[in-house]
């Protein structure tokens, strides 16, 4: 494991921890998109189904369990514990527009026509668009809690760092993963606007407000 991948996984973990702490501390899930969290839960469940038959390492297994359980815990916090704080009226992105194209892409572009490979490909495409409801919600409200902004930033950094990881692995191991590489490029592009505003506002101590 190289440094890019390790830091990527850490920032991915950090993003989830930030989100859980925010919801618990403020006893509110205001500003957090339930739809995005639901899509991530779907991403993890469809991708990590291999936990039962494909052992990689203790690290890998531990992280898979962490991502699945922590995301389902967020769904629980939003749906049960702090339900009144979440306003579905501003979380209006149609998730069919992400799920359907991901399913089509998974059927066309995959590593083989087995249930496992199709689900894996589906999860990769789905992940590339899963942040859209959250970004859409941010655009509707125009501003966000600092922690929500840090959450999205940490998530963007995670995806960005996987790109140098794949370049590094291509150079040192000759390993190629075109599906994940392409999906990650798309995903990082979706964050570019957000990164720009984060840099120009949040980095200078200002409130996150859209122009």
């Amino acid at each position: 494991m190289n440094i890019f991948r390790f830091l990527a996984d850490l920032s991915h973990m950090a993003s989830i921890v930030i989100l859980i702490l925010q919801i618990r501390k403020t006893k509110s899930a205001a500003g957090v998109s339930y739809k995005t969290q639901f899509l991530y839960a779907l991403v993890f469940v469809t991708r990590y189904i291999d936990i039962f038959f494909h052992y990689v390492s203790l690290y890998n297994t531990f992280m898979k369990i962490f991502f699945v359980t922590s995301t389902i815990y967020i769904l629980y916090l939003m749906r049960v514990q702090y339900k009144p704080s979440h306003d579905p009226n501003i979380d209006t992105f149609r998730i069919e527009y992400i799920i359907a194209p991901s399913a089509v892409l998974a059927l066309i572009i995959n590593h083989g026509y087995t249930l496992y490979e199709i689900l894996w490909s589906f999860s990769v495409w789905l992940e590339s668009g899963a942040i859209l409801p959250q970004l859409f919600m941010l655009q509707r409200t125009g501003e966000a809690e600092t922690l929500t902004v840090h959450y999205i930033f940490a998530l963007g950094i995670y995806r960005l760092l996987y790109i140098p990881n794949w370049i590094y692995r291509y150079v040192t191991e000759g390993r190629v993963e075109p599906i994940a590489f392409l999906a990650s490029l798309i995903q990082t592009a979706l964050y570019s606007d957000f990164f720009y505003i984060y840099y120009t506002k949040v980095m200078q101590g200002k409130k996150f407000e859209l122009p």
Binding site: D50, F67, W120, E173, G174
Partner: peptide, 10 residues
């Protein structure tokens, strides 16, 4: 590696 899928990442 290369052609064969090797999903060892998260």
């Amino acid at each position: 590696s290369g052609d064969k899928a090797d999903h060892d990442e998260l």
